[in-house]
Design a protein around this nucleic acid. Structure first.
Lengths: 174, 174
DNA sequence: ACCTGAACACCGTTCAAGT
DNA sequence: ACCTGAACACCGTTCAAGT
């Protein structure tokens, strides 16, 4: 039973979610597929390309059909947070090179190019910070969170940031 | 002539700027200091800690004395861009865990906590995207930039994003 | 206090060879 | 087309030992 390129990408995403980016090595992906490391290079030219394919997959599910830019941003944030180190993978593999992504295109229709870019980069930075902080709490590196629910506070902060940006776009007449 | 912890951090920053994060290994830092790799562990418990110290150093120079929040953000962006892969290093080493940074504290004085966080995370995402894109152009991976100056366009986009956020804060009455 | 030398368990990638 | 096996030049980290 032999593998396809999407088998490799799927396996890589499983390894990422189970072990984190630090341990998402070609050799571990290979052994998840019960295959020699060198076999991966039949499907993918190098690790960088594999990471880019993973980033595309992570972003693929984002809902871009609605009319509410905040909802698009929340959906993007959800996708980035749905997998361990997802924000980091998408950041460095850069599924957002130039204005190529469909998410940015949709946001640009709704609020213009500058607004789209601002919303996108904020969402991105916020998701990354969220994931870094949640991991720090999980490790116990930030032991005493001031009473309560870090994930909820982080999400609330995100919504307020999006509201500020949308208010700014409204004020400058779109 | 023996080394101190700051010698190690300085050497690591030189290696980072010369070769990039991918090749900024403990072994390369060691050989830059003409020392065995194991010697580094006398000054630093592990690589992660070294990266955090590097991140602190990168952010240390940011000008936080002025009254203009946009100027603080521009200074932060400048610091992140002043060294190769600087935005990535600060992002993942996360000098912005909780609200610990002096930059965030100063911005919070000027525009409140939510505004500070929004400005900071946007600045952060934008710097990272800038660095990723500039590197792509340097490699030639994005061969045909539509006539002109990528760095300037990126900086212009940054200023417009900051203006949008500040307008939003103004509109929501600070 | 700061360093060497050797070792351990890993990496990404290439390449000839198999089916 | 897809894979194995072996090799190359690397990693981070530990630990006994030196000065």
């Amino acid at each position: 039973m032999r593998n396809s390129r999407s088998d490799v990408v799927e396996a890589a995403l499983r390894v990422l979610d189970d072990h984190g980016l630090e341990f998402c090595s070609m050799r571990r992906v290979a052994s998840a597929l019960e295959v020699q490391p060198s076999a991966l290079y039949h499907h993918v030219p190098n690790k960088q390309t594999l990471l880019a394919l993973m980033a595309d997959e992570i972003v693929r599910g984002v809902a871009t059909t609605g009319e509410d830019p905040a909802a698009v941003c929340r959906s993007l944030r959800g996708a980035l947070l749905s997998i361990r180190d997802g924000a980091d993978v998408v950041a460095t593999a850069s599924a957002f090179r130039l204005g190529a992504s469909s998410v940015e295109a949709r946001l640009a229709q709704l609020v213009g190019a500058d607004g789209a870019r601002t919303l996108l980069l904020y969402t991105f930075g916020q998701a990354q910070a969220t994931q870094t902080q949640m991991q720090a709490y999980a490790i116990g590196a930030l032991p005493d969170y001031p009473r309560g629910d870090p994930a909820g506070d982080l999400a609330g902060g995100f919504d307020r940031g999006i509201a500020i940006i949308l208010a700014g776009l409204e004020a400058s007449g779109r």
